[in-house]
Design a binder for these strands. Structure first.
Lengths: 221, 221
DNA sequence: TGGCCGCTGTCAGCTTCCTGTCAGCTTCGC
DNA sequence: GCGAAGCTGACAGGAAGCTGACAGCGGCCA
């Protein structure tokens, strides 16, 4: 799952990026507002972690611009401790959640999970399709109640596909979400990965749309 | 049911008191450590909600003094965000459970209920998984009723993992919670520690999620 | 003071598992 | 039926995690 991290303090950015990576996300870090706005508008992230105090264009403006542009990406706002005005503005500007600095990494992670989950329209912290269930907290996938051991990459791939259940996801998108940095384009790594996941959870759960990508079908009965 | 609330921030105290009252508890609110110690020692509460950052006598000392005096009142500790040292010490001082600030009221209520329920069973250990039980008040771990001698670090590691039972905890998070200050990042101390704990309590009780972290699984039968 | 003991971090070597690549095959769309 | 796209099994290199040994440190007791 790909996350855009917008934070100008390099120390905090590094810490957060490390924690997010450790939690299994693919993190892209950006330090100024203009760049953030561009990326958020042109690329696709599962969520954005946005610091408000930024050089270039400030965080709030960036957020407002995204929202004006129709983006519904879940945004978790970080802001200086106790800054109520900012908080109110943040929420008004369309932030999905708000975390005052300084914060505990776990709290960031848990709020981020919540924000992503809500955005996915899932009330429970569980993605379910037919017999297949994915629990992001435990990073555990079960098929008919039986745990399916997945490698980190396999897990990320499946999580992303299930997250976007019912949508066709291109190989390129998958590549961007599963890997940290850009990958060889002419590799068939994604195909291999899909194959491996299919072997573990059942081939019919990931459909191929030749020429377009893959999808996890919506209704499965 | 009577609850002693020890919290010096009047806003938080008011919020918590309101929520507790609404949940049907009788709340007594105290803002400084001396007073808290005195009340906790001389009166009878179903549980105590204790903030650690206090004027007068700090929360940790209060807790330690209660415990030294033989009190077994269930104590739920609130710890400031980002204060790892406090959290670590809280685990060591005999808190029944702890909750990082800021927190959701529902979570406070649910943890408080749990703490009270367990205390009602008298000496019932707090965290249980299959044959393994961890009693934070005594800092004691038992396996099939037999005490397992754990070193301080081993205990902290296990306590934290059990506290977050069912969730994957990254090595980074573990490092932050087990050690008071930052640690060498490229050390394999956590791995070694996990290995030592596993040897004592059984390897299957701590699962590895390669590339993500460790977890104590939820249902264990 | 000196020796013993338990705790803990480091290290090296080992094992296990992951994962990208490749070659050859199958399937699909036209 | 052809070519492109996708699938699959094998494989090798490497990363992540595990483990036993060891040494430094501090506490404790004689």
């Amino acid at each position: 799952m790909r996350i855009l991290l917008v934070e100008d303090d390099p120390r905090i950015a590094a810490d957060v990026a490390r924690a997010l990576t450790a939690a299994g996300y693919v993190v892209e870090s950006v330090a100024d507002g203009e760049e953030a706005w561009f990326r958020g508008d042109t690329e696709d992230y599962a969520a954005i972690v946005l610091d408000l105090g930024l050089p270039g264009m400030d965080g709030l403006s960036v957020l407002k611009r995204w929202r004006r542009g129709g983006s519904a990406i879940p945004v978790l706002v970080l802001s200086a401790r106790g800054n109520w005005a900012e908080r109110v503005e943040g929420i008004d500007a369309g932030a999905d959640d708000y975390l005052p600095k300084p914060f505990r990494m776990e709290e960031l992670l848990s709020r981020l999970r919540a924000v992503i989950r809500r955005a996915g329209g899932h009330a429970a912290p569980l993605f379910e399709i037919g017999d297949l269930a994915l629990d992001p907290r435990q990073m555990k996938v079960t098929l008919r109640g039986v745990a399916v051991p997945l490698s980190p990459l396999e897990y990320r791939l499946l999580a992303y596909l299930m997250h976007r259940q019912g949508e066709v996801v291109s190989q390129l998108e998958l590549t961007e979400h599963v890997y940290v940095q850009d990958h060889e384009r002419d590799s068939n790594a994604i195909e291999v990965l899909v194959g491996r996941v299919r072997r573990k959870i059942g081939a019919e759960l990931i459909e191929t749309r030749r020429g377009f990508g893959y999808l996890v079908p919506r209704a499965e009965e």
